[in-house]
Structures are given as structure tokens and as C-alpha cells.
């Protein structure tokens, strides 16, 4: 197969179709679960979406590492794609912060004209949340260590640093789960509970996605998929991880600290 151009013309693939219908099944499944209490359709939707995601990204790895379709021009396109994706995620979190400040800067009479609302016992920001801040900031350092090790062809340290980053991501998720179980308020406790759990919950979801992304990079690193000048998959994961880290700093300062 010879090309006269640097672009990647993709093969026909079933994954966009199964992704779209999988999402339809999953959201319909949620509606059915909420109304009738049966979870079957939701599980079918999750299964279709998960298998699609794994297979689609498996194909991207095949195209990149095994077929050599990711030329500099293609990687440039991926770079723009990742930047646009993270920008859209910034807008997503911006909306949650807007909701939080809308409710907290001028608390209504219904919640006792105070923030946290009357009767809400907020979490102490200098206990587990501060530890979580330290964990995420440390993971930002270890991922930079991993990046420099990849650039310097130091495989041993790259494996060590990236493995440590994944472990720190898992530790953050565990601490956050513990904090949720321990919280003296729920998502149903006034607008405080709603804004708190929606913002920190979606951040937690992003940490889980980011940890999965990093774990995939870890196994790709073990499988010799990254060279010192060709490792955009890792860079994209690192960008995403730093984004998740920065969102946490805003959450910590605004919602946990100022908001308590």
C-alpha cells in the first residue's frame, strides 16, 4: 500500500454506528431504570458502549503503532482534536462553577441566607480534601518525570514514574469514595448538596477516565509502543491529567475551602 500524501484515510468501521446506538440504549436504559426500576437495558447499553470504546481505541493503536498511519500531519490533527476536546471540558466545568457561585454568592432566604446553608455541616477542607490536593499535585510531578524519562529513552524510570502516577490516581479515587461515604450531607440536601456532588462527582468521573487513559499508556509503554520522539498517546493523557488536576485546584479553593 503506497500513499502519495501524508493524510490517513481511515478504513470503514462499525464503531461509530455501535457507539451511537450504544449511547441510545444506555440513555433509554437510564430512563427505564429511573421509572420502572429494572436495570437490564442500561447494562446492555453499557456493554455495547464499553466494547465499542475498547475496540475503537484498539484500532487507533493498530493504525498508529502497527500500520504507521500517524504521520506528523495526522498527529497535528490529533493535537488540535485533543485541545478542542479539553476546551469543551473546561466549558463543561465552567457551567458547574457558575451554578455554584450563582447559589453561594447571594444565598436565598429558603436556605437561611447563608452559605453553607443552615443545617448543612460542610466537610473540613484541611483533612481529606487537602490530602487529595497533595496526591493530585504529586501525580502531576510523577507524570512529568515519566514524560522526561520517555524523552531520554530511560525506560526503567518511565515505567516506575507512570506506574506511580496510576497508583496516585487510584489513591485519589479511593479517598474521594471514602469522603463521599463519610459526608454528613447528600445530593438531596439543598442546592449545597446538588452543586457539591455534581461538581466533585463529575470531577471524580474525569479522574477515573484519566486514570484509565494513563493505565492504557502504562501498558503501551510496557509493550514498547512509545519512542522518544513519537508518543502522542502519552502526551494526550498527560494533557488530560493536568486538566483534571487544575479543575481539582479550583474545586478545592472554591467549593471545599471558600464554600465551607
Amino acid at each position: 500500500m503506497t500513499h502519495q500524501h501524508p493524510f490517513h484515510l481511515v478504513d470503514q468501521s462499525p464503531w461509530p454506528l455501535t457507539a451511537a446506538f450504544g449511547a441510545l440504549i444506555m440513555t433509554s436504559g437510564l430512563v427505564v431504570w429511573f421509572h420502572l426500576g429494572t436495570i437490564t437495558l442500561f447494562i446492555i447499553g453499557m456493554l455495547a458502549t464499553t466494547v465499542t470504546a475498547i475496540s475503537w481505541w484498539r484500532d487507533v493503536v493498530r493504525e498508529a503503532t502497527f500500520q504507521g498511519h500517524h504521520t506528523l500531519v495526522v498527529i497535528n490533527g490529533l493535537r488540535y482534536g485533543m485541545i478542542l476536546f479539553i476546551t469543551s471540558e473546561v466549558c463543561f466545568f465552567f457551567a458547574f462553577f457558575w451554578a455554584f457561585f450563582h447559589s453561594s454568592l447571594a444565598p436565598t432566604v429558603e436556605i437561611g441566607v447563608s452559605w453553607p446553608p443552615t443545617g448543612i455541616d460542610a466537610l473540613n477542607p484541611f483533612l481529606v480534601p487537602l490530602l487529595n490536593t497533595a496526591v493530585l499535585l504529586s501525580s502531576g510531578a510523577t507524570i512529568t518525570w515519566a514524560h522526561h524519562s520517555i524523552i531520554e529513552n530511560n525506560r526503567g524510570e518511565a515505567v516506575q514514574a507512570l506506574g506511580l502516577t496510576v497508583i496516585l490516581g487510584l489513591y485519589f479515587t479511593a479517598l474521594q469514595a471514602w469522603e463521599y461515604l463519610d459526608a454528613p450531607f447528600t445530593i438531596a440536601d439543598s442546592v449545597y448538596g446538588s452543586t457539591f456532588f455534581v461538581a466533585t462527582g463529575f470531577h471524580g468521573l474525569h479522574v477515573i477516565i484519566g486514570t484509565t487513559f494513563l493505565a492504557v499508556c502504562f501498558f503501551r509503554l510496557l509493550s514498547h509502543h512509545f519512542s522518544n520522539h513519537h508518543h502522542f498517546g502519552f502526551e494526550a493523557a498527560a494533557w488530560y491529567w493536568h486538566f483534571v488536576d487544575v479543575v481539582w485546584l479550583f474545586l478545592y479553593v472554591c467549593i471545599y475551602w471558600w464554600g465551607s
Binding site: G22, L41, G45, L47, V51
Partner: peptide, 9 residues
């Protein structure tokens, strides 16, 4: 799974 799920939905 997708075809079955779509019909079921």
C-alpha cells in the same frame, strides 16, 4: 448486542 438492545429499547 447493539441490534438487540436497540429493538429492546
Amino acid at each position: 448486542i447493539t441490534i438487540f438492545g436497540t429493538i429492546f429499547a
